[in-house]
Write a protein that binds this DNA or RNA. Structure first.
Length: 423
RNA sequence: GGAGAAAUGGCAGAGUGGUCGAAUGCGGCAGUCUUGAAAACUGUUGAGGGUCACACCUCCGGGGGUUCGAAUCCCUCUUUCUCCGCCA
């Protein structure tokens, strides 16, 4: 969420920047500014009236104490008469605040200068790639076939007990998942991220804090009876740790990591792209979250990108890094790098990580501030990234490491799996 | 799930209708003293809105109500604690 004073002072620049998202924000920004003017004048009028009433009330108390009941009663009638006006002004103010809030929720974050223009994922800019795409032998299979052949993932069983998109991992498949989780968490904690285990359901306020609500209700599973949401990512509980926090500058940066399952309804997805592990309703992910000083947030973003790179290098998977274009950029993000691993048997790239700087956009919603050296309060910057999303990493390993004899395990994972081959 | 008690500033904890945004202690910050630190002493120290700056307004778990006036009274929700029941 953008701040109103910022909008007031930078309207034209915001309109220009949001064009990269293919959004014309002019009308909404104008509405915000004019409602804010009304809001402030109403607030001033209300404050003035209340001040009068407060003075009179205090006087009434003094008059009663000094036994001057007649005069006190007269004043009382005067204040009573003002109450209707007070209520009307307060209602107006409330309504302006609500209108303002609603409009502010509609405006996405301002893209960073580096964000390329564009409307679809085809316009994303490749900024880095590494690792050789292996030439597969004759008879190489896509991961869902491999999963069946080696009996390590049972999609049908998941469908039976829950529904499509909820696979069951078995035997060495389950063990490999657990190995990946442990490996990722170890990498993250070695880099200074503090490991957390968090609730997998969150309340409505948390959904608002990170920007899933309003508008994206349909993406999350909602437990109606208790009004809780299943988390679509650990970003939601972890970033909301800091909701309504005022921290000391010296506490920054704050680095957290958490492994959680993630639940996504993925309404509207269909076809070959949801095959196998490509798109699931429940999947595992290890997340990293940072709360940063605004001065450091872009250096931190680069650091997170390097961190994820290192993991992929160790796994020896072919991957590339994309800088998302305006049209593909998430609502709350100012700059996002996507990591994609190459799925050899499918001959396509699969997104396995998304690393973003939200600048103050989430912090403003969260009321996450820090006190600087002068004692001034500033919004902090929040960032997060996946390190990594499990299913597609697993798909990448299965497909790229397959041999006629079986699936080799990346060397770095062997200490975690306890075996070096799935056969 | 049932019964009872409670929720106040970073923390602890006073405050039961007006002079309370709130005593006191701890903590934090600044200073005095000290070679430096500690101790001691002095001062300072909640948040939001609003203003050029003041003024002023709002906030004592959330929401609503009574009253000229609410931290204080009433209703409701949430959370915490104690006891009982159930339970991994």
């Amino acid at each position: 969420m953008l701040q109103v004073p910022f909008i007031r002072e930078n309207k034209e620049a915001i309109i220009t920047a949001l064009k990269k998202r293919n959004i014309d924000a002019q009308a909404d920004l104008n509405a915000i500014i004019s409602i804010d003017v009304k809001r402030r004048s109403t607030q001033a009028a209300l404050d003035f009236l209340r001040s009068e009433m407060n003075v009179a009330s205090k006087k009434i108390g003094e008059l009663f104490k000094s036994g001057n009941a007649a005069e006190a009663n007269e004043l009382k009638n005067g204040v009573s008469a003002q109450k209707a006006e007070e209520k009307s002004l307060a209602d107006d103010l409330n309504s302006f605040n609500e209108q303002l809030q609603e409009l502010l929720y509609k405006i996405p974050n301002i893209p960073n200068d580096l964000v390329p223009a564009g409307s679809t994922e085809d316009d994303n800019e490749e900024v880095f790639s590494e690792g050789e795409v292996p030439t597969l032998f004759d008879g190489a299979l896509p991961h869902w076939e491999l999963a069946k052949k080696y009996d390590i993932i049972d999609f049908e069983l998941g469908t039976k007990i829950t529904g499509a998109g909820f696979p069951v991992y078995k035997g060495k498949g389950a063990r490999l998942q657990r190995a990946l989780i442990n490996y990722f968490l170890d990498k993250n904690t070695a880099a200074g991220y503090i490991e957390h285990q968090v609730p997998h359901l969150v309340n409505e306020a948390s959904g608002f804090g990170t920007g899933q609500l309003p508008d994206k209700e349909g993406q999350m599973y909602h437990v109606g009876i208790d009004d809780l949401y299943l988390i679509p990512t650990a970003e939601v509980p972890v970033t909301n740790f800091f909701r309504d926090n005022l921290v000391n500058e010296s506490e920054l940066p704050i680095l957290c990591t958490a492994y959680t399952p993630c639940f996504r309804r993925e309404a509207g997805s269909y076809g070959a792209h949801v095959r196998g592990l490509n798109r699931l309703h429940q999947f595992d992910k290890v997340e990293i979250v940072r709360v940063e000083h605004p001065k450091n947030s872009y250096a931190a973003l680069d650091g997170m990108v390097d961190h994820v790179k290192e993991i992929l290098q160790e796994l020896k998977l072919p991957y590339r890094i994309l800088r998302l274009c305006g049209g593909d950029l998430g609502f709350t993000s100012a700059l996002t790098y996507d990591f994609e691993v190459f799925s050899t048997a499918q001959d396509r790239w699969l997104e396995i990580s998304s690393v973003s700087n939200f600048e103050t956009f989430q912090a403003n919603r969260l009321k996450l501030r820090f006190k600087d050296k002068e004692g001034k309060k500033q919004l902090a910057h929040t960032l997060n990234g996946s390190s990594l999303a499990l299913p597609r990493v697993l798909a990448g390993i299965l497909e790229n490491y397959q041999t006629p004899e079986g699936i080799k395990i990346p060397e770095v994972l062997v200490p975690y799996t306890g075996f070096d081959m799935i056969d």
